[in-house]
Every structure is written in structure tokens, then in C-alpha cells.
């Protein structure tokens, strides 16, 4: 008898965006380890290949996708098989103080962090790629309501993403599709390399649990939300942040 595990993703097909690095990469790997067939997309083809090489099982797929236009999203969705779940992990960050934010930077952030997941979800739904009881997961951030220096544009994009999640969750509940978000605190990924080592060490001291998160620790939450254990869970914003927002 195999060990009891209600969190297995055996025979589920899961799409993971932003899988070339960081949290998206960890999610793709953990989903494959839990038995899912994983379809990955990402901006950096070389790093995407590396993620692909780390996936377990034979049923995985890597696809080139351009989520910056509606046409790109539509043609991508047409190539997809039926899905049991999708994790929107693609995201970018740019820190600019209020005096320096501008239309171009705002558009870039909103495009990647909000419009792309919104329109991709719409197309997945319209083209009936999400089969019964499937699960949609957005990787948001505690930044949606937790300020840090110069993070205005990113905060706004993630706040809007949380609202998007709840709106879609309500609308798709009639189809038995559940929609939830994970809100990580600072996780050790490439997104964080712009600040100095000293600033990082000082920032880590503010975390009640004493360190930044690991990408896998966010991936496990995605696995949970994709698994059959969460069939009665929708519209939730799951914070995983080492306690930083307790302050």
C-alpha cells in the first residue's frame, strides 16, 4: 500500500506561467514531483529549458508564449490541452519613488502582473480549457497592502490582482472552478538582487521567523490549492510571509 497523501496531483495537467525562474520555477518542479503533467512558459528560453530539465515524469511540455498581446494569449491558449489547473506566477517588479513613476513603467507592470493573467484566464475559460473542478492560482504578494520603499506600482498591480482573483472566484463558482491567491513575503529569488547584501541582512532581521522564504515554501501552497483537498476553497488570499505583516 502506498502512503496516504491527499495532496497528490497525479494525472492532473497544470499550466505554470513565469516558470523560468524563482517561485514559478519551484512551483513547476514541485507540481511535477507530486505527479502532475506540467506545461511551463517563461520569458527566458534558456532558463525555461533548465526548469524543464528539472521536471519529473514524461508528460511535461514547455511552450513559447507571448502574453504581452491579446493575439499572443489567444494563439497560445489554442495550443493547450485540457487543464486541471493553472498557476499565474509570471510577474515583474520595478521600484520607483512617486516622483519618478511614469506611464511606460506603469503600463509594463500592469501588463505583466495584471492584464496578462486576467486575459489568459478569460481565454482559458472561454475556450473551455479548464475542465470541471479545476483550480486557478494567482501568485500575488503581501505588497498588495504592505508598503515598502518605492514599491508603488508593484503594490497597485498586486492589489488589483487580489481583487481580480475574488471577482473571478465569484463568477466561476457556478462552474465549480475555484480561484485563490498566494501572497508571499520576500522570497529568495532573482527579483531581489538589486539591493545590497547589508540592506538584505537588515531587512531579514525584521522578519519574525528570522529569514526570507524559500521558493519551495510558496510552491507547497500552490500544490495545496491545486490538489483535491481544496475543493471547498475559493476567493482566498493565502499569506505566507514569515510573519512580517504581523508587525
Amino acid at each position: 500500500m502506498s502512503l496516504y497523501n491527499p495532496f497528490l496531483l497525479t494525472d492532473k495537467t497544470i499550466l505554470v506561467t513565469g516558470a523560468s525562474s524563482g517561485i514559478g520555477k519551484a512551483i513547476a518542479i514541485e507540481c511535477s514531483k507530486m505527479g502532475a503533467n506540467v506545461i511551463i512558459t517563461g520569458r527566458d528560453q534558456n532558463r525555461l529549458k533548465e526548469t524543464f530539465s528539472l521536471l519529473q515524469g514524461e508528460g511535461n511540455l514547455q511552450l513559447i508564449a507571448d502574453f504581452s498581446t491579446t493575439e499572443g494569449i489567444n494563439s497560445f491558449v489554442e495550443k493547450l490541452p485540457d487543464l486541471n489547473g493553472v498557476v499565474h506566477a509570471a510577474g515583474i517588479i520595478k521600484r520607483l519613488p512617486l516622483k519618478f513613476i511614469n506611464e511606460k513603467a506603469l503600463n509594463e507592470l500592469m501588463q505583466t502582473n495584471l492584464y496578462a493573467p486576467a486575459l489568459l484566464t478569460q481565454q482559458l475559460y472561454k475556450k473551455k480549457k479548464l475542465i470541471d473542478k479545476s483550480s486557478i492560482v494567482f501568485i500575488s504578494s503581501i505588497a498588495a497592502s504592505f508598503s515598502s520603499i518605492g514599491n508603488i506600482m508593484y503594490m497597485a498591480s498586486k492589489g488589483a490582482l487580489n481583487s481580480l482573483c475574488k471577482g473571478i472566484a465569484f463568477e466561476l463558482s457556478r462552474n465549480g472552478i475555484r480561484v485563490n491567491s498566494v501572497l508571499p513575503g520576500m522570497v529568495q529569488t532573482n527579483l531581489t538582487k538589486v539591493i545590497t547584501e547589508q540592506e538584505i541582512q537588515d531587512d531579514i532581521k525584521r522578519y519574525p521567523l528570522g529569514r526570507y522564504g524559500k521558493p519551495e515554501e510558496i510552491a507547497y501552497a500552490a500544490v495545496y490549492l491545486l490538489s483535491d483537498t481544496t475543493q471547498w476553497m475559493t476567493g482566498s488570499l493565502l499569506t505566507i510571509d514569515g510573519g512580517i505583516t504581523l508587525r
Partner: peptide, 22 residues
């Protein structure tokens, strides 16, 4: 830290130059 971020942003905006953190 806000001053530092502002200075880097100003240099990017005015001179189209990005000075790496290190």
C-alpha cells in the same frame, strides 16, 4: 534608502544610465 532609490531613478530618467547596485 528613499533618497538612494530616487537618485538612481533620476539618473536613469535624466541620463538614460542605470548604475548597478553593487
Amino acid at each position: 534608502s528613499m533618497g538612494q532609490l530616487s537618485l538612481i531613478a533620476m539618473i536613469d530618467e535624466e541620463y538614460d544610465v542605470v548604475i548597478e547596485g553593487k
